[in-house]
Every structure is written in C-alpha cells, then in structure tokens.
C-alpha cells in the first residue's frame, strides 16, 4: 500500500475542523499524512504525531508582501505553500526556491492562469504545482467546466516541463476530505492517468516533505 499524502488542509482556528477530527478521518481514509496549511499562520496546537505536518499557506496581495512573508516564515515551518491565483503572484512564487507548493495556481475558482514560463520556473526551483480537487467537488456546470479546462491546460504544461505536481483537497472541514482512490478518480476527469495521479499523491508529496528537490539550493544558502 503506497503512502498517500494530502498537503493542503485547513484546520481550526481558520475553519471549524478540529485537528483531532481531521487526523481521525484522514487515517480512516488511508492517508499516511496530511499537512495543515492555514493561511498566514501555522496551527498552534501541537499534536504528537508524525501524521500531521504543520505548514503555512501565504496569502499576499502584492509581490512585495509575498516576498516579505516568505522571508518571515521560511525556516520556521516545514512546509511553505503560497495561495496562488493572480498571474504576478504565481510568477513570483515559482521564482522563489524557498516555496514548496504553489497552491491552486488557477485560483480557488479558476479565475487565474498559469503560463509556460511559470511552469518552467517551477520545474527548475522544485516548486510543486497543486491541482485543487476541492474546487471540482464544490462547483457545478459552467464554473466546473472552466476549472477543468484550466486544469487540463496546466497539466499539459506540467507534463511538458516535468514539474512536480500534487493533488490536494483544499479541505475546510472533515467532510471535504476525500479518500485517495476517489482523488485519483477525480483527477481522471481532467485527463490525468492513474499512474500520474498515484505519484502525485504518494511520491511527489513525500519528496516535497523531505525537500528532495531542494538539497543543492539549501546548501547554497547555508
């Protein structure tokens, strides 16, 4: 059984989902770990478990603010994600090798876009491109069609430049979490193959947590 990870889950106090509940449900669903990435603030509650990774999702309105917040959080949390959506912010996030994940690059409801230059930077800097499956669960009709279209385009670019990609639920409650096999089935909706989806849920998230693509960079900084 492969180790599945979900690297974008929001917990209390940002949402009404307590950490223990999320832990219980994710374990039941067969995950090997989840990352709590609350916006701009890591979860204070300490859980004595290897299961939970406490990260931060940085939300910024300008490139300057983003840089400032990345510098503030880097080194203090094991996982640094950036709340994507805006073109300029996406570009700034993938150019910064300190960032681990660019969460929902097409925005939470498919309003942004990711171009080929950004994806190339992401591949070079080891910034994982996130496919937010929660958006597919919570939207219907034309909105969902637009999001699927965006995801298909992003997937094409990611395949071309071989950038790391991950599948996340962007869950705000325990009812938003989905079991790994359901995530794979959802990823098939925008053309991701079963093998790709499995590695986007197992190997790549594990690599991100271990900073597999960052080693040389970190040595440089030290």
């Amino acid at each position: 059984m492969p180790n599945f990870f979900d690297l974008n889950v929001h917990a209390y106090p940002e949402t009404d989902a307590p950490v223990e509940e999320l832990l219980r449900v994710a374990k039941r669903y067969g995950y090997a770990g989840i990352a709590l990435t609350n916006h701009d603030e890591s979860v204070k509650e300490r859980v004595e478990s290897n299961f939970i990774i406490t990260g931060v999702e940085i939300r910024a309105h300008s490139v300057l603010e983003l840089k400032r917040k990345v510098t503030l959080h880097w080194g203090k949390v094991p996982l640094l994600a950036v709340h994507g959506g805006d073109d300029k912010l996406n570009r700034a996030a993938v150019e910064d090798s300190r960032v681990d994940i660019l969460a929902h690059p097409c925005g939470e409801n498919g309003e942004g876009e990711l171009n080929h230059v950004s994806v190339r930077y992401a591949a070079a800097n080891g910034v994982a491109i996130d496919f937010n499956l929660g958006a597919l669960i919570h939207t219907r009709r034309s909105e969902r069609a637009r999001i699927l279209d965006k995801m298909r385009e992003t997937l094409k670019l990611v395949r071309k430049y071989n950038a790391p990609m991950i599948l996340t639920s962007n869950a705000h409650s325990i009812y938003d979490l989905r079991a790994p096999h359901e995530m794979i089935a959802l990823a098939a909706l925008f053309g991701m193959s079963k093998e790709e989806a499995t590695s986007a849920l197992c190997d790549i998230p594990q690599g991100i947590v271990e900073k597999r693509w960052k080693k040389e960079k970190e040595v440089e900084i030290m």
Binding site: L136, I137, H138, R178, E182, M183, A185, L186, A188
Partner: peptide
C-alpha cells in the same frame, strides 16, 4: 467513484 466524490 468520481461522481460519488463530487457529492458534497
């Protein structure tokens, strides 16, 4: 499976 996952 995909349809079941989309029930929210």
């Amino acid at each position: 499976r995909a349809s079941l996952a989309c029930v929210h």
